[in-house]
């Protein structure tokens, strides 16, 4: 007699815990590649995140900010490296999940590999970015004047629909590498892989609340994040021009740093031959303030 498998309940990741939507709503995602369903049934139920879920996630991210931004840059790098280890050890699972969402085995494998490499890239960046973005400013008078990058706080991310895993990894890791915390809305096309990614986060020593991932409809949730006063910035990757404009407009009420990006289908997120594709200092500095300090000099 064959054994009946246990199916997994897919949940959002908020404050270090896996939660359902407070709204009780869900949407269904089916497997495109039925041979790769694994333990999953053909169709799974995914929480359809609500405004309240977004607010809870912002609160978790806000509460995590002081602790995370006060950690040493080296420690943040260690945790990101640990995340890369967790991703590497679950490569097969992540690859199968991307296949379930319709990728070929080859493409899925390449995307998972690139995602692990991206985590490594930012793991090694945590304690370098300050040197690259700081300055000593030669002002007149008895002052030691210098400028340093400083994290902004809670940043909301609308992750690109595709690539579901690499897009999420590429957008949120640079934001937390610099000491911010994140509320991300995962790709609605493939939320399963995002949840799997969160399971890697949960086992990588990352403090709860540093990364919060909601599933559902960005069009519904993101405008609430744009209006939320505790959210310092938004990074939105979406083809929906109307949503981009809406986030920019709603963000103005609290002078939010809003960056939006169309995501043309040919947008490249990884190129082994070109280290400037899909990553870099530009991703890091987008959500950093510059703090200038004039310190007295004298005897």
């Amino acid at each position: 007699m064959t054994r009946l498998s246990i199916t997994k309940a897919y949940k959002m990741y908020v404050g270090g815990a896996f939660v359902r939507s407070e709204s009780g709503r869900y949407f269904q995602v089916s497997a495109n590649d039925k041979s790769a369903t694994g333990a999953d049934p053909e169709t799974v139920n995914i929480p359809l995140g609500s405004r309240k879920d977004a607010r809870d996630a912002v609160l978790a991210a806000k509460n995590a900010f002081d602790g995370w931004s006060a950690r040493t840059a080296f420690n943040r790098g260690q945790i990101l490296y640990r995340l890369a280890e967790m991703l590497e050890s679950r490569r097969d699972e992540l690859t199968a999940s991307l296949q379930r969402a319709g990728l070929s085995a080859k493409d899925a494998e390449a995307e998972v590999g690139a995602s692990v490499d991206r985590a490594i890239f930012y793991a090694g960046f945590c304690d370098k970015l300050t040197a690259l973005l700081s300055s000593y400013n030669p002002v007149p008078g008895p002052h030691f004047d210098f400028s340093v990058p400083d994290p902004m706080g809670v940043i909301a991310v609308v992750a690109p629909a595709k690539p579901a895993l690499l897009g999420l990894v590429s957008t949120i890791l640079p934001i937390i590498a610099a000491g911010n915390t994140v509320v991300a809305i995962a790709s609605k096309d493939d939320p399963r892989t995002a949840v799997l990614f969160c399971e890697c986060l949960a086992t990588s020593d990352l403090p709860g609340g540093v990364i919060n991932v909601l599933t559902g409809d960005a069009k519904e949730i993101a405008p609430h994040l744009a209006k939320h006063r505790e959210v310092a910035g938004i990074d939105a990757w979406t083809e929906d021009a109307e949503l981009r404009a809406k986030l920019e407009a709603e963000g103005s009420d609290s002078v939010k740093r809003v960056t939006t990006h169309g995501t043309p289908v040919d947008l490249k997120w990884y190129d082994a031959a070109d280290p400037q594709v899909g990553q870099g200092l530009g991703f890091l500095e987008r959500f950093l303030e510059t703090k200038t300090i004039w310190h007295p000099v004298g005897v």
Partner: peptide, 30 residues
């Protein structure tokens, strides 16, 4: 964005100036 120790309202073109939160974004100088 700018913190003055034992001084105030000092400005210099080599020293980046600009705000956090609702004081705006972007820096001028430096």
């Amino acid at each position: 964005g700018v913190i003055w120790g034992n001084t105030f309202n000092k400005l210099d073109p080599s020293s980046p100036f600009g705000g956090y939160k609702e004081s705006g974004f972007g820096r001028e100088g430096g």
